[in-house]
Write a protein that binds this DNA or RNA. Sequence first.
DNA 1: AAGTATACCAACCGCGAGCGC
DNA 2: GGCGCTCGCGGTTGGTATACT
Length: 202
Amino acid sequence: MPKAPISTKCTRKEVNRGAWTAEEDQKLAQVIEIHGPKRWKSVAAKAGLNRCGKSCRLRWMNYLRPNIKRGNISDQEEDLIVRLHKLLGNRWSLIAGRLPGRTDNEIKNYWNSHLSKKIKQNEKQNRSSRMQEPVLENSKVSDMDTVPKESEEGTFKRDDNDSKSCSIGDIFFNFHSEEPLNLDWMSPFLEMDETWFNFAYI
DNA sequence: AAGTATACCAACCGCGAGCGC
DNA sequence: GGCGCTCGCGGTTGGTATACT
């Protein structure tokens, strides 16, 4: 008889769901203060919360953690999010890692509700304005043209071998530069993870 | 004022990776 | 090596607030 797949879903009937109460937050924070943010299943049990570990982790990561900023994403932060998304695609945790006090969930929500629309609008405007411009020989492509299509749609893949087409120079050096940059040397780094990024993005 | 549409965001879900046994 | 558990991530859902008709 085949074994049932391991479920990560909180299926216990008695498990609390939905919005967290102030009391639950307090209990969770107390237990984490003592035992640390690990072993979420036991944290939930120790706190006497009828919540699954996953739910506790999410609550801690997005709300209860110290130094969490809420709301009012500044223009600077927004600009950074756009640039990072251009580079990394939907790797929200990496993007959040570059924005102190912001969570991946918040950035993801902000992107989905604000920025994705904004960018689509910009694209439309760019396209329509380009339609009216005369086509110049050897004319330089715009920033948008250097971004992989998938990235625009938010489905940039981690292992995308075509990542060379992402205009990393726009992000790291001079976002609005008119000068073409030779960035071939950087393409190997595009396959790497946060480590190189911490090094490269200052 | 009431009903409907849209925007926002907290929370949930499924999946994959990492780790210890 | 295989299994089970835990964690983290990204996609999605659903409830609430606000705007619009």
